[in-house]
Structure formats: C-alpha cells, structure tokens
Design a protein around this nucleic acid. Sequence first.
DNA 1: CTGCCAACATACCGACCAGTATGTATGTTA
DNA 2: TAACATACATACTGGTCGGTATGTTGGCAG
Lengths: 216, 216
Amino acid sequence: MLAARNSPKHRATRLRDSERTRERLLQAASREIYRSGYQSASLDTILALAGVTKGALYYHFESKEALGHAVVKEIIAPDVHGKWVRPLQSVKDPIDALIGAVQRIPVRPADVRGGCQLNNLAQEMSPLDAGFRKRLAIIFDAWRDAVASTLREGQTHGSVRRDVEPADAAGLLIAMVEGYGSLAKNAQDPKVMKAGIRNIVGWLRSLRAPGNRRRG
Amino acid sequence: MLAARNSPKHRATRLRDSERTRERLLQAASREIYRSGYQSASLDTILALAGVTKGALYYHFESKEALGHAVVKEIIAPDVHGKWVRPLQSVKDPIDALIGAVQRIPVRPADVRGGCQLNNLAQEMSPLDAGFRKRLAIIFDAWRDAVASTLREGQTHGSVRRDVEPADAAGLLIAMVEGYGSLAKNAQDPKVMKAGIRNIVGWLRSLRAPGNRRRG
DNA sequence: CTGCCAACATACCGACCAGTATGTATGTTA
DNA sequence: TAACATACATACTGGTCGGTATGTTGGCAG
C-alpha cells in the first residue's frame, strides 16, 4: 500500500498548472511590454491578457520589475540565442550563415512596426534601471561574441578576410541590424527593412576572403 | 500725440516674456522627455523644471501631446538640421564633411547614456502615435536626403565612387549611427561609441573614389 | 474526516496622472 | 479711470497606477 498510487500525477498536474500560469503571465507581459514599453505596460492589461488576476501575478513574481526581468531572461534571451547564436555554431561557411541569419529577420508589417524586442527594452530602460541594463547587455554581448567567433573561425579556414577585426565587424553588424530596425520601425514600412537587409548582406559579402567567392 | 509713445516697448516686453515662458517650457519638456521618455514624462516635473505651473503650460500648449509635437518641431528638428544638413551643404569634399559630422557625435558619458533624442522618441512613439511618427519621419528623411545629396554631388565631382548608390549609402550611414548609439547607450560606455565612430569613418573612407584618397 | 498549504481571486489603498475650472495680477485700450 | 484681455497661478477632478491585505478553493498528508 505504501508504493501503490502515490499520486504523482495529481501533484504533477498541479505543478504543471502553476507553471502554465506563470508562463502565460510571462507571455502576456512580453506582448504588452512589446506594445507599450515596460514603463507604460499596465499590469491590469497583462492580467487581462493572461486571464488571471493580481493574486496569481504576485504569487509568481514579487514585483512588476521582477516580471520584466523574467521576460528578459526567459523570453528575449532565448529568442536572440535561437536566432543569432545557435545558427552560427559550427557552420561550414560563416558568411553564408550570417547572411542567412540576416535574411531571416522578420519583415512582416507587424514585426517591422513593433521593432526588435531586445532593442526596444534596451533603449527604454538602459538609462533608467541597472537591473534591466545589465541583463540586456549580457544578451548583446552573447550576440556579438557569437558573430565574432564565427568570423574568427572563418578566418582560420580562409573564408573570411584576414584584415577584418572580428569584434569590430560583429559590433558593426549588430549596429546595422538594430539601426535599420529603428528606421523601418519609424517608417512603418517593410520595404525599408528589406532594403536594409540587402545592404547588410552586401556588406557581409565584402568580408569574404578573395578566392572564396560563392557568387560572381 | 497720436504718434508719440505708442508703447511698442511694453507690448514687446510682454510678448518677449511670454515667448520666454514658452521656450522654457519647451526646454524643460525636452530634457524631461530625454530622461524618462514621452509617456513617462510627468507634466509636474516639466513644470518644476521650467519654474511655472499648469496655467502657463495649458495657456501655451493645448495638451501634453501638443507639447511633445512642439519639442519635435522646435527642438529636435533644428538640432538634426544643424548637425547633419547644414554642415553638408556645398562642401568641397563630401566624404570629409561626413567624417567630420560623424566625429562630432557627442561622446561624453551623459550623452552616450542618454542616447539620441531623435531615435529615443522615434523608438518609443512611432508605433503608438501617428502624429509623432510622421514628424519624426520627416526629420529622418531630411537627414538621409542631405547625406544622399552630398554623396551625389561628390560623384559628379569625382570624389565619391560611382558604384555607390547615394540613397542606400545614406540609409546605411544613419542606421550605423543610430545602431551604435543604441549599443553604446545600453553599454553606458563612451568607448563603445568611439569604436563605432572609428568603424563608421573607416566605412566612409571606402566610399572615396580611387585616385582621390586623402590618406595612404 | 481534518487540518494544511499551494495557488490563486477579490477588494482596497495611497500616489500620481493629465486635464480643467476658476482666481488674479498686470498691463492695454477706450 | 473703468472695462478688458493677456498671462499666468491655484485648487481640484476622475481615472489609473503598482502594490497589499485578506478571502477562497482544491488537493493531499496524517
């Protein structure tokens, strides 16, 4: 009788429901912060989106700030990792991989109008809250390190020009991506972002070592 | 008696005082919006900065939104014009002029931490308020047009490479400037901005037509 | 069956918000 | 000098904010 029906399922169900509530709060907060910015994001709006009430929120998070930090860590960081770090790990051709990542930047009207989650929050909160700033800086650093590493590897394999400074080029790439994102967000026009992607891709091609051209 | 002492001075004094109050409100609003963003900028804080009260504000501006629009038109637009349009008009060497403008980007810690007024407001308000978005888009367009025009002129004079598309290069330059501004703002580190300026300058040099090099 | 705790829901709080209604001092005009 | 408009100051409003204190419910151990 001691081993029979120890009811791990019921416990698991409860825990899973609790985790699902937390996840819904995170997703709702992410969407609302994306729309209105962190400071103007209303907890009531987030709660309505998540379909729960204040009690649930303050059970899972100790404050609005903690909720925001959790969005950075559990939503934004994995997103950037999936788009800019994992795709660059152990690839044959770094330039092709970078071009692919750039071309996979969302260009649907809604995405262009909303901009980049990472950049949005960094722009708004970096001067105002050290907790946000540091967490976002870690993401930017990981992004830049991933690009720089793949460029360095390309240099050792001879596919990337030796006179390119990987760290500088990585920073420049990120600046271009975020800069064009800003321009396209203001213009509210996917064409601006598409033109930006073309220009970035052209610049990336110029980093390829002579004799390693894929085209032309 | 009809022409004597028609008291234009008193009227002028009154008008000048009124105009000064309006100007102080604009400057205070600009600073507070720069610090906290438009949405989170408190009118009470702006009034305290300007040293006036609600009555003065709503005498000169019909709403917070109108005040914000006036900041864009009367503070931000002239600032961008003075830094990126006037310095590029009828210059001998467009590349040198562009390099000069880039090198004149403020890199003091306070400037780097605060970011670019134009980009700050554009990022925050473009998706939320069409009035802000359009006014800011006009500034971005004027900026890009000024850069593109000076590049075109450089092409006719032979100092800029013919294979450069002026409009594309202008957009890329602005994207780089704003992108690096974002990265430096998040890093809160003037070194990031200085490194960005060096990279942008290097890219600008690559636009110079062969045989027109200023430096080896 | 009972007590207990996790996982919420509900009701409420003071602070702050943009905006307004009204008061008032200082010229200007008739 | 009396009427009047300009250029504000003061006092107040309804609404929203993040946060808290308390109530409620369901599963689960003893």
